[in-house]
């Protein structure tokens, strides 16, 4: 066990991907939307029942998929740059603008179409149409297109019925609050 762990770690370390066997909770996964889904599904069957470190599940063959997934990150970066350029360009009036962004994915050249409405130099609304050819790229583009949304507004917790919990950043503990107050 110990020997094989060491070997695995070194292999994964070199390849840029480490897989742990599980997380201590025997739960099922929500709809997977990314490529390493199957890796984690397999791994999660061998969850940690105790404190012992499990051997990372064989994940070497998944590196290609994971690398491909990582390389698709250019989509978002390029698009953000385009948005900023647009804001500077059209400051005076409301304007609608369609852009097709090209980039190179591991599977070759891809494009994504972005449409936005600009009012007084600010992006008022934005939408994206996935137009990738390769399946992996298509998946990423769809995930990104689904993520564009309107401005969020807060609603008083007391107005929301039937909440079991509130998910947010860590509640500030007493010590931290007092220390800030004493500054």
């Amino acid at each position: 066990m110990k020997k094989s762990l060491k070997t695995s770690v070194q292999i994964f370390g070199a390849a840029g991907l480490v897989l742990l066997a599980g997380c201590g909770a025997d739960t099922t996964v929500t709809e997977p939307i990314i490529d390493s889904a199957e890796v984690m599904e397999e791994g999660s069957q061998k969850m940690m029942e105790d404190s012992a470190v499990k051997e990372p599940v064989d994940g070497v063959q998944e590196d290609a998929a994971a690398d491909a997934a990582m390389d698709d990150t250019v989509i978002k970066d390029e698009k953000v740059e385009e948005v900023e350029a647009m804001e500077g360009a059209v400051e005076d009036a409301a304007a609608s603008q369609d852009i097709t962004v090209s980039y190179t994915s591991p599977a070759g050249a891809e494009t994504i179409a972005v449409s936005m409405v600009i009012v007084e130099g600010a992006v008022a609304s934005i939408s994206a149409v996935p137009s990738a050819k390769h399946d992996v790229s298509k998946k990423w583009q769809t995930a990104f297109a689904g993520g564009l949304s309107a401005a969020a507004v807060g609603k008083s917790l007391s107005e929301i019925a039937g909440l079991d919990a509130v998910g947010g950043a860590s509640l500030t503990t007493g010590g931290f609050k007092e220390a800030v107050a004493s500054l």
Binding site: T30, I34, A37, M70, I75, D77
Partner: peptide, 11 residues
């Protein structure tokens, strides 16, 4: 970016 973090696991 979220895309870069896809290599870590399903989320």
């Amino acid at each position: 970016s979220p895309e870069a973090l896809g290599a870590v696991g399903v989320f």
